[in-house]
Design a protein around this nucleic acid. Sequence first.
DNA 1: TACTGATCATTC
DNA 2: GAATGATCAGTA
Length: 239
Amino acid sequence: MYRREDDSIRRQHQTCELMDFTQAELLSRCERLAGFSFAELADLLQMPLPATTTQGKGWIGQLIERALGAYAASKPIPDFPHLGIELKTLPVNAKGLPSESTFVCSIPLMTIKHERFETSTVYHKLKRVLWFPIEADKSIPFAKRRLGNALLWSPQEEELAVLRTDWEEAVDMIARGEFAKITAHFGQVLQVRPKGASAKSLTEAIDEDGQRVKTMPRGFYLRPDFTHKILQQHYSLTV
DNA sequence: TACTGATCATTC
DNA sequence: GAATGATCAGTA
């Protein structure tokens, strides 16, 4: 099977360092990727498929970054710095609903109390997000899962208000040294969960008595309900 | 079965 | 070890 667009997709990741493409071109690149299976895209970019789904965590996200010409991988800047756009894959189940939470950013437990929501990493990460739905249903073999139709999103005022409430609640608790009391049950849409290599990973924090202690690194995650509503908004606008 | 807490791969 | 990219898998 050969598509006329295949060469242009190969070229996309070769021209990545120029970073001269426009937002319109980025969206056009996304359209050309829609419908490809993981295996087809891996073949085009000459990337090996992961042996197991466990080993494939993050793999499709990095593959799509390459296909789109993002080069900021593992740097604390947006995926497309010249456009201020963050790329996020969004795994969806057989019903088209997000099947997982979305990692936003890690939490600097020692310093976040000095931040305001408007200057926070959460705010900047979510200002402009290019959501790329991908099939994640466990009944579909990994290699056969396909890419969906990407959508560019920015939070509405109401969404920002809820995010701010959740963010401030978490930061208030961290500022009081109550990070250990924060469970994934907190937060309407933005939750705090462990984010580390394992439960043995440790980072510094200040506890309720003002003592320096070691604790699990934490991160902010978006609940699936929140990303579901983003997809719904988009569909209602495009149908 | 949805959700929380834990974990996996790669890069720097 | 900490940043990037996330999903796994046991349990409530």
